[in-house]
Write a protein that binds this DNA or RNA. Structure first.
Lengths: 232, 232
DNA sequence: CAGTGGTCTAGACCACCAA
DNA sequence: TGGTGGTCTAGACCACTGA
């Protein structure tokens, strides 16, 4: 055999599930039974089952057995980066404002801080081929290592700004996507003269204690962005 | 020890990465070295490393070693279901049309079929608390097991419609999210009288040969939807 | 060549579950 | 009590990398 034995086991069981021989909540044969069936050691069988479990095909209950899982029909993975999406690439960025402010009540609530703590505000405009395509607004709790040089801020994405100081692996992030009409200020920034919808993406970044450390809203011209995701 | 040994190894190495002792592209000590360091067998160490690899912390190159990966800053997971999102739940669905048509060139292209093959069209309106919130349009290549009873179609989500017949595990799906203004037809369906942005979600479902088997567009009133995603 | 990760084995003990 | 999955070991052979 060219392929490792555990992969052959994985493919065989996957095929049984996909063909309907094994249905959701059906029991997969026990590890000892599979071990005999495939002429492999129990550890090899377990390696195969671990892969199936990881791919969402099965789950195991100690003392009982392994069972076929119901497929995840609604799960998608999306790679979002405010400066690079599937139908346009930001080729220029203009810094409108970098400032230190006292948050108002709403912002203090979002960042779970108090209204007497300093917050960094960054406002940017993104351009594609000379045209403004997005208005970007960020609020960050200051921490050491953050880019404070204007040139750095102009080019950095949201996670990059906070990850200078914090271990990037332990960052938790939330994304929120909606559509709305532009207000007068955004219309001015994005050169919108007639009716045009905005795609609004909010990001929130948390440290590993689940405290928010940054909040970001990006307003994209609806005709210049399409977010893409896929299963698997 | 309460926890299994391999988890202790995982936590220890994670901590070394998060604290900066191990930086991206640094080499993790060899399996034999870790085996001595933790007083564990090589297989136990490997189990730990496999988890770290799976969580995106490290990667391995045969013959060379294991190395710390750069963190994925842009990856998000989103659970999308046209009938149930984070700020509203569709509590009623009205079927506007079920039909069999010959696709035009554009649609035939999307579904990678020819203009003389039949395609099922389904048009629905979704309601929340009596108000129309979304206009939903689906094109499906017919296959056995598909719901053809009106009652079923009214309540089913897109993956559910095609997964009656096909093994749901092997479905590949694509998602595309954008914002646009409603046309006159949609304004009428969604009772839009003034300017309101739409959030438009396109789904495309492929079988395991990567042939598209369905295409779906849902137009949500911008004031009734917010898609949520998160990292991890 | 010695060292690395990848695969595989044949045992072992454990906690858990059901009859 | 016997069967299940979960953990762990101490070996083995392999293909690959780099000096």
């Amino acid at each position: 055999m060219i392929n490792p034995m555990y992969l052959a086991i994985v493919e065989d069981i996957k095929q049984k599930i996909n063909s309907g021989q094994l249905k959701p909540s059906d029991a997969v044969p026990s590890e000892n039974a599979l071990s005999k069936e495939y002429g492999a050691s129990r550890m090899t069988v377990r390696k195969g089952l671990a892969i199936l479990a990881n791919d969402g095909y099965i789950y195991s209950i100690p003392g009982k057995g392994s069972f076929v899982r119901k497929p995840e029909l609604n799960k998608y993975t999306i790679y979002y980066n405010e400066m690079n999406n599937s139908i346009n690439k930001v080729d220029q960025s203009r810094l409108l404002e970098v400032n230190i402010i006292m948050p108002d009540e709403k912002l203090a609530g979002e960042l779970q801080t108090t209204i007497n703590k300093n917050v960094i505000v960054i406002r940017r405009l993104f351009y594609t081929e000379g045209k403004p395509v997005a208005y970007d607004l960020k609020y960050l709790l200051y921490s050491k290592g953050m880019p404070i040089v204007e040139k750095e801020i102009e080019q950095a994405t949201f996670p990059e700004m906070v990850s200078g100081s914090i271990a990037a692996f332990s960052l938790k992030k939330e994304l929120s996507i909606s559509a709305q009409m532009p207000d007068e200020e955004i219309k001015k920034h994005l050169n919108i003269y007639d009716e045009l919808a905005l795609l609004v993406v909010e990001q929130k970044i948390f440290n590993d204690d689940n405290k928010p450390i940054g909040f970001c809203v990006t307003y994209f011209r609806g005709d210049y962005i399409k977010l893409k995701g896929n299963s698997e």
